[in-house]
Amino acid sequence: MSKLEVKDLHVSIDGKKILKGVNLTMNTGEIHAIMGPNGTGKSTLSQAIMGHPAYKVTQGEVLLNGENILDLPVDERARAGLFLAMQYPAEIPGITNAEFIRGAVNARLPEDKSLSIRKFLKKLDKTMQVLDMTEEMADRYLNEGFSGGEKKRNEILQLMMIEPKFAILDEIDSGLDIDALKVVSRGVNQMRGPEFGSLIITHYQRLLNYIVPDVVHVMMGGKIVKQGGPELAKRLEDEGYTGLRDELGLDIKLVDEEA
């Protein structure tokens, strides 16, 4: 079992304070969800955990199995077992998807344990079938010209091939129709197990019907303001974020709030 802990995390971008003391603990074998209104810092949290250089941690720590990872560069965090399915994955022309994924899979294996091309392709093929991806997606350039939905599937494809300890999925549901949502959820659910934990970031409850979380965190104004079980997500769906905010007596302006 592995443990990921976020302790009193403060993060700024361009000198602007976004996260103001986030606390969160999760173990492999668990699925956590973070819900929150737009602009509240959900992506900031995921990027700070992964190690995006633009997100400056000003206070607090992130521990993986008790070790602070904040001094590690992003690639070492990845090899330590973290994965982030990004809200806006980069497009990289000139490198095929398969070529890249193979590099990523082998990057975390010792040289003498590298996956042979044959074994790799077999696994890739099988995984792409789970995600209803056509074969040609393997030979296309990494994310280049992919539709929104194709990019999301491709993030999950990488997740399933790399098999990290902890995967943060940042709005993996945005822009997906219901069929695609089911496919993506099928992929994530297949990963579920004692050696895998996931932090699912979403704005909507809908995704959580397909990937049922063990714990739901609500984030507002750069902090986690409430925790609960799956029923918390349902309640938010019915009452909206404003309801919860007012109940908690928080003085936060929501971006999407009607004037």
């Binding site: 994965f83 980069a90 890249f100 990057a107």
Partner: peptide, 18 residues
């Protein structure tokens, strides 16, 4: 692009080469 590649575990120099 570099960040994306490195976030999958590729060392910086390899990511640069890609």
């Amino acid at each position: 692009q570099l960040y994306y590649l490195m976030s999958r575990g590729l060392p910086k120099k390899m990511a640069e080469r890609l």
